[in-house]
């Protein structure tokens, strides 16, 4: 605010900063990725808005509603496997802190396997629904239900590819600025999927089941 001071001594004023090397690379990276994740969160918020609008009883067009086709305990196993996957990833990150490469890789592999379990359960659920004639084309309500859950599943799918890539990178390169930065970004990505799953699970599966 007091930028226009009266007297300035040209010899004492700092005009250039040769020693300035900028900012910490990893935190700059993770901020950018976090912003991406938030915009991804907005995608889910918009999908939830759409789901809310399309989950009135007339939106199911007289057809099956989630209260008829959701099985809470089945989906709970999905919840458990996703949470365990996230936990495994977290254990891997704790190992990384101790520069334990083997621990990290086993954590990643654990997360991978449990993520695959989650995805298989989801695919099984969807094919089961399709067999009962409940598809994306059944009614506006089922369209919203299936898109919302499957967009989440698609995130899991791409996360799994990324985990695979990171397993390969950590094995070949070890801990570099690049790999550590990416592992941190992936951690945010993976953990955010768990947070979003809480909403999907509670407000789409459970609420759909009870209403």
């Amino acid at each position: 605010m007091s930028s226009h001071g009266n007297t300035v001594d040209p010899k004492k004023t700092v005009l250039w900063d040769a020693e300035y090397h900028g900012h910490d690379v990893i935190s700059t990276r993770s901020l950018g990725f976090f912003l991406y994740l938030l915009s991804d969160g907005m995608i889910f918020a918009t999908l939830f808005a759409a789901y809310g609008v399309l989950s009135y009883s007339h939106n199911y067009f007289g057809g099956p509603t989630p209260s008829q086709f959701v099985h809470p305990w089945y989906t709970f196993t999905q919840t458990v496997s996703l949470f365990l996957s996230v936990l495994a990833y977290g254990m891997g990150m704790a190992a990384m802190k101790n520069r334990n490469r083997g621990g990290l890789i086993s954590g990643l592999l654990g997360a991978l396997v449990l993520g695959v379990v989650f995805l298989c359960l989801d695919v099984h659920d969807m094919t089961d629904l399709a067999r009962q004639g409940i598809t994306i084309a059944t009614s506006g309500g089922t369209s919203a239900f299936i898109i919302l859950t499957q967009v989440h599943a698609a995130h899991i799918f791409f996360g799994l590819i990324w985990i695979l890539v990171m397993v390969a990178q950590v094995s070949s390169k070890g801990f570099t600025t690049d790999t550590v930065g990416r592992l941190l970004s992936l951690r945010m990505f993976w953990h955010l999927q768990a947070i979003i799953w809480v909403f999907v699970y509670v407000f789409v599966y459970l609420w759909g089941y009870i209403s």
Partner: peptide
């Protein structure tokens, strides 16, 4: 805001490619 556009268009694409009923007048769309 751009995510909202991506969702809106994604749902239009779902309607046109997979036959879902997000924005149709009938079948419980809106």
């Amino acid at each position: 805001s751009f995510p909202a556009l991506q969702v809106a268009l994604g749902l239009v694409a779902a309607d046109r490619y997979f036959g879902s009923h997000f924005f149709t007048a009938g079948f419980g769309g809106n």
